[in-house]
Design a protein around this nucleic acid. Structure first.
Length: 804
DNA sequence: CCTTGAACCCTTTTT
DNA sequence: GGGTTCAAGG
């Protein structure tokens, strides 16, 4: 077989994306159009056909999970080839020992040298080589053993600066809001000074000051946050020609997935690497520049859902101008569109297409179905979130009962906010159905895991005072706040890390008096373990020593509660994670493991197709697919979020998020909303999401859309799903008089201020505010019962009262 | 110094 | 409703 036989699995557009060799290429890839396949095969093709050395390839993925999958798929292609060429057989037909040998050989030759990962993990890797060459504008520097602060570390630093160091009014300067501003500034590539220039007010000056102090704090701790992980390489490449030259020369072929979700700094990084520092346009103007080099980006503007962390899809939209030939679609050689969808039924695609067409900021593109029509979308209206959870569980049970080939892993429940998982979890527990929540509390966010990791970080990086403070009295050693404050004050006055103070016997004795012994007990343990770490002892061995010496597990065992035993389990799990990392990456170093752990996310370990039903946010679902998808909580204010109320661009992003959710489904899609939702303890009325009224009615069944006749809905779904007796009876759909009395859609009325109205649930009220335009109105109504509510007249049943 | 209970945020979305 | 933070008492 020719060396390009693997290309036969591709359609013509995919094939032209994969076979493109040098120069720039933008791949506009709709949901489910096989872009992962295109990326994977492109890497294979570069190596096989064009003889590109794997170590010259840089592929940026959006999640660690995607990186892992991509490596696995590339490995699979190569392993099959070696089996065929070397043994004349399919890999599976060979003895197990040969399979293993082939795989490990392929891994070593082709996979390990590839640079595949997220922006964050790849940058962490670059920094572990080169961070010591970096100086920030204040002349500060970091060492290779830098810590990566996670979000909660960062939050606590901000809180300390805002409320203690600067003593600001936390009403006006909410530490979280300030942190968000600083993060945004960093992702735009703004220094504190630049921020001040952009926001010339007391507010702006104050944020800039916090930003300055925060950066100082990071430097003192020899630490970086997630934003710095990208920002510092960018600054380093911009300030150091030889470092830039090295990486530019190394990464000849750059691939970026989910390009619509890159932000300014990430773009700068890619640009610097690709062009050796030149502006994109200037670089492209000289064709020879691209002689042995390419930049290949894949994305879909309609799936841009991360603008809250400064992702900017106009970067993708500018690619043609930037790197490309800028020619129209028919003539361009620097853009390919993948529009054939292999994932979903025609119905699902039609619904998705019609929804997303309401957005104004897009690249024109449709998803063409390749599969059959499929079943209608089913939209259900529930009384409250428990009712909704039971609806979901009910359907899952019925489907799995009637279709033995289905397992829990074929179902996904998607929601807008993490907090929505609770009622769903309760229902799954009650009916004893295995489920898995993605996101929420990460493994690495658990207290006991953070404690152990803080110890480990301290071994690598003694300047990490945040970690030091976390563990100095864990388990309890009688080192309290007073003692710690005394030591900390001195350290700050001397401008040295806290560790340097407590590591000096004399100082400790002077400052801490009778607590000195407790502190020295702690420093002895840490010093001993640090020596091991410095001698490159494998991470696993250090971990064991740590657990023994600190008595961390012993203390938990003494507590003896179920919770404590769980924690011991999680501590053991860290060891497993270390072994796993050492295996996967052939790296036993503590530093490697720690960097990896800081960047790990819950999604990485998600096992699709397992027994457990997956519960997650719509954001987390990007890139995944499931045969059966439930989108719950389709209510105004929740989805779309109330924060997008008066911001059209934010609303478009919510709509894209809805589009992402819909296009996850392969076979069946369920939508649901509730009439009453519990918020901070008390029930609030909720009206159906405006997105529901934006979907094509003729493709949707069920009692959830006011305009859809219930009869038709019930007949179809009930015909397929036999009714469940007993336990599920309490939540089976019951006739709602209000649903039956709904006005037909299309009868749209322009509502005016001051009109008196009758609402079918809340009674008589007066319109006190009108939002939106004639096409899409929402009303603030002050009801006689007292409450004022914002309602959507297109989906709520409202009548005008005579004489108003 | 550590435990207890009241006050107090909170719900966008995440590498 | 629920998890975290902060003050008072042991």
């Amino acid at each position: 077989m020719a060396s390009t036989d693997f290309l036969s699995h591709l359609n013509p557009s995919q094939r032209s994306a994969v076979e493109h060799f040098c120069g720039p290429l933008l791949v506009v890839a709709g949901a489910g159009s096989g872009k992962t396949r295109a990326l994977t095969y492109r890497v294979v093709n570069l190596i096989l056909t064009h003889r590109v050395d794997p170590e010259n390839i840089l592929a940026v993925t959006f999640t660690n999970k995607a990186a892992k999958e991509m490596k696995a798929r590339i490995e699979e292609v190569f392993a099959q080839r070696v089996a065929l060429e070397g043994h004349g057989k399919q890999l599976e037909a060979l003895p197990a020992i040969d399979q293993t040998r082939i795989r490990s050989q392929v891994w070593k030759t082709y996979i390990k040298p590839l640079w595949i990962g997220t922006f964050h993990s790849l940058c962490a890797r670059i920094l572990r080589f080169d961070i010591e060459k970096y100086r920030d504008p204040q002349g500060r520097s970091w060492t290779k053993t830098f810590s990566i602060f996670d979000e909660s570390d960062v939050q606590s630093v901000f809180k300390e600066i805002v409320t203690q160091q600067l003593n600001l009014d936390s009403k006006k300067f909410n530490p979280k809001a300030v942190r968000y501003q600083v993060s945004n500034a960093k992702n735009r590539g703004w220094s504190p000074e630049e921020f001040e220039r952009q926001e010339m007010s007391y507010w702006g000056r104050t944020i800039a000051e916090v930003y300055r102090l925060y950066q100082g704090r990071l430097a003192e701790n020899n630490a970086l946050d997630f934003d710095d992980l990208i920002r510092i390489p960018v600054e380093l490449l911009a300030q150091n020609e030889s470092v830039l030259g090295y990486w530019h020369k190394k990464f000849r072929h750059i691939l970026v997935d989910e390009y619509q979700d890159t932000n300014q700094t990430q773009y700068d990084l890619i640009r610097l690497l690709a062009t050796n520092g030149a502006e994109a346009k200037a670089f492209t103007k000289v064709p020879e520049n691209w002689a042995q080099r390419s930049i290949f980006v894949v994305g879909d503007v309609d799936q841009s859902i991360y603008s809250f962390r400064m992702a900017d899809f106009t970067i993708l939209m500018g690619f043609q101008e930037d790197f490309g030939d800028g020619l129209p679609d028919g003539d361009t050689r620097s853009m390919v569109k993948l529009e054939e969808n292999y994932r979903s039924t025609e119905t699902i695609l039609e619904v998705a297409n019609q929804l997303i067409e309401l957005n104004t900021e897009r690249i024109d593109k449709v998803l063409r179905p390749t599969r059959g029509k499929g079943d209608p979308i089913y939209c259900h209206r529930c009384d409250n979130e428990q009712d909704e959870a039971y609806f979901v569980v009910d359907r899952v049970r019925q489907f799995t009962r009637q279709n033995p080939e289905l397992s829990g892993g074929d179902f996904a429940i998607l929601y807008r906010t993490n907090a929505q998982s609770r009622p769903l979890e309760d229902a799954f527990i009650k009916f004893n159905i295995p489920y898995k929540v993605v996101g929420g509390l990460r493994f690495y966010d658990r207290k006991e895991v953070k404690d152990v990791l803080a110890y480990l970080r301290l071994l690598e990086n003694p300047a990490d005072t945040v970690s030091l403070k976390r563990v100095i009295n864990v388990p309890k050693r009688g080192i309290g706040k007073t003692t710690l404050d005394k030591l900390d004050t001195i350290a700050q006055q001397l401008g040295c890390p806290l560790w340097d103070i407590i590591n000096d016997e004399t100082s400790v004795k002077t400052i801490a008096g009778r607590k000195a012994k407790a502190i020295m007990g702690f420093t002895d343990i840490v010093r001993n373990l640090q020596a091991q770490a410095a001698a490159d002892t494998p991470a696993g061995e250090i971990f064991q020593g740590l657990i023994d010496d600190t008595g961390y597990v012993r203390a938990l065992r003494e507590v003896g509660t179920d919770e404590a035993l769980d924690r011991i389990q999680n501590v053991n799990e860290i060891y497993n994670a270390m072994m796993q990392y050492a295996d996967d990456e052939a790296d036993e170093s503590l530093g490697g493991f720690l960097a990896n752990a800081s960047l790990a996310s819950d999604l990485d370990s998600l096992d699709e197709g397992g027994k457990a039903v997956t519960l997650m946010t719509l954001h987390a679902s990007k890139g995944l697919e499931f045969p059966i998808v439930f989108m719950v909580g389709m209510e105004d204010g929740l989805f779309p979020s109330f924060r997008s109320n008066d911001d059209p661009r934010a609303l478009e992003e919510e709509r894209r998020l809805c589009y992402v959710g819909i296009t996850r489904a392969k076979e069946l899609l369920f939508l649901s909303h509730v009439t009453m939702r519990r918020l901070w303890g008390n029930y609030m009325p909720a009206s159906p999401s405006q997105f529901l009224s934006e979907l094509p009615e003729d493709l949707i069944e069920g009692d959830g859309l006011p305009s859809v006749q219930r009869d038709r809905a019930l007949s179809r779904i009930n015909a397929r799903l036999a009714p469940e007796p007993a336990a599920v009876k309490t939540f089976s759909a019951r006739t709602r008089s209000s649903a039956a009395s709904k006005k037909p859609a299309g009868l749209k009325r322009v509502w005016k201020l001051g009109e008196n109205v009758m609402h079918d649930k809340f009674g008589v009220g007066e319109i006190v505010m009108v939002f939106g335009n004639e096409k899409k109105q929402s009303l603030a109504i002050k009801f006689q019962q007292g409450a004022t509510k914002i309602v959507n007249p297109h989906v709520e049943s409202i009548d005008l009262l005579e004489g108003s």
